[in-house]
């Protein structure tokens, strides 16, 4: 097997004295959807954010396309071909949909803009209808679509998504997950998906990691984890 697109080895990260990650190892291969599930406070968002440089890892190593990116500033990392739709979406509320998308494309050659915009609108026709509307007045689902579309405007090699299903109705969740599946299947986009919604995430992803207390508790193919008793008991029972 070729070298993974992104490799995390023995990653530690802390907020002041609180150690949120205590030696995490994760590999993401080109073309995969990898999901990270775990309880609230397990450190999922922290892992995703420290892949982007903040909080800075206190120990361990992150390599992207064979290049050591540990300790780079966030904006430098994002320019290497990683994009994220952060927890809570963080779209620009006073800016219009179109302006938000333009912001997503700041690091790319403007020559690609029209093409990328077209693709974004094909993925999310709703955004096309709403392109003149301010981000803050979009519905939660639309905001999530915008956050994903904005991330994709930078033509990333790796897309990081933090809880895209948060606070959305099941039907919208299915729509969004369907789009993620299409992006992966049609464009070969590598996706790292942080999710609470373990059942849907495992259905969508190829492989998965379970994070607990800042450590990887379990990992394997999605099918394996879906069939695993412990996972079922902790993350799936009573769920969906």
């Amino acid at each position: 097997m070729s070298a993974p697109l992104l490799k995390i080895e023995g990653l530690h990260a802390a907020y002041g004295a609180i150690e949120a990650l205590r030696g995490v190892d994760v590999e993401i291969n080109e073309g995969e959807i990898v999901t990270l599930i775990g309880a609230n406070g397990a450190g999922k968002s922290t892992l995703l954010m420290s892949m982007c440089g903040k909080p800075r890892p206190t120990a361990g190593r992150i390599t992207f396309e064979g290049r050591d990116i540990t300790g780079l500033a966030t904006h430098q990392i994002m320019r290497l071909g990683i994009a994220q739709s952060p927890e809570g979406r963080r779209i620009f509320p006073r800016m219009t949909v179109m302006e938000n998308l333009k912001m997503g494309a700041v690091v790319t050659d403007p020559a690609f803009f029209d093409e990328d915009l077209d693709r974004a609108f094909r993925m999310f026709p709703r955004l096309k209808e709403r392109q003149g509307q301010r981000g803050g007045t979009l519905s939660g689902g639309e905001q999530q679509m915008l956050a994903i579309a904005r991330a994709l405007m930078s033509r990333p090699r790796l897309l990081l998504l933090d809880e895209p299903s948060l606070g959305l109705a099941p039907i919208i969740v299915r729509q969004i997950f369907q789009v993620i599946r299409e992006i992966n299947a049609e464009q070969g986009m590598t996706v790292f998906l942080v999710e609470q919604n373990a059942f849907h995430a495992l259905k969508l992803a190829h492989r998965a990691y379970v994070l607990a207390g800042g450590r990887v508790q379990m990992s394997g193919t999605s099918a394996e984890l879906l069939g695993n008793e412990e996972v079922r008991a902790a993350y799936l029972e009573g769920g969906h």
Partner: peptide, 24 residues
């Protein structure tokens, strides 16, 4: 222009701006 839009975006959400590759 991109830089002007970046100013406004920075004012709205600095973390999001970093995540989009902007050097604040």
């Amino acid at each position: 222009l991109p830089v002007g839009r970046a100013w406004e975006a920075l004012r709205e959400d600095e973390i999001a701006c970093r995540a989009l590759g902007i050097n604040p």
